[in-house]
C-alpha cells in the first residue's frame, strides 16, 4: 500500500526534479528546486490522487519535506477511510 503511494508521489515529483534521482528521505525544499507555489501543487496532487483532504492541522512543513513524509501523511489520512470500509 505504502509502496504504491510512494511510487505515485515519486512520479509526480519527477516532473519537477528532472534528471535528479530523488531519495526517499531527501529534503525537497532544501534542494532548492521547488517554491511555495509547488507546495500547493503538492497538496492538490495528494488530495486528488489519494482522495484525501489536507486540512489546516496537517500544515507542518515536515509533512511535505520528503517522499517518505508525504507517503506517511497520505497513509495516515487514508486510515480512517480504510477502517470505515472494513
Amino acid at each position: 500500500m505504502n509502496a504504491e503511494i510512494k511510487t505515485a508521489i515519486r512520479q509526480f515529483l519527477a516532473g519537477t526534479f528532472k534528471n535528479y534521482e530523488l531519495e526517499d528521505n531527501e529534503d525537497i525544499f532544501a534542494l532548492g528546486f521547488v517554491n511555495s507555489l509547488f507546495a500547493m501543487q503538492l497538496v492538490l496532487f495528494v488530495e486528488k490522487n489519494f482522495n484525501i483532504t489536507v486540512a489546516n492541522e496537517d500544515l507542518e512543513l515536515d509533512n511535505f519535506r520528503t517522499i517518505e513524509a508525504l507517503t506517511n501523511l497520505v497513509a495516515r489520512k487514508q486510515q480512517p477511510v480504510a477502517a470505515a470500509m472494513d
Binding site: S36, A39, M40, V43, N56, L59, L61
Partner: peptide, 13 residues
C-alpha cells in the same frame, strides 16, 4: 488561518 509559517505557502497562495 492555516498555521504559523504557512501564511504565504498555503493561505495567500
Amino acid at each position: 488561518v492555516g498555521a504559523v509559517g504557512f501564511g504565504f505557502t498555503a493561505v495567500a497562495s
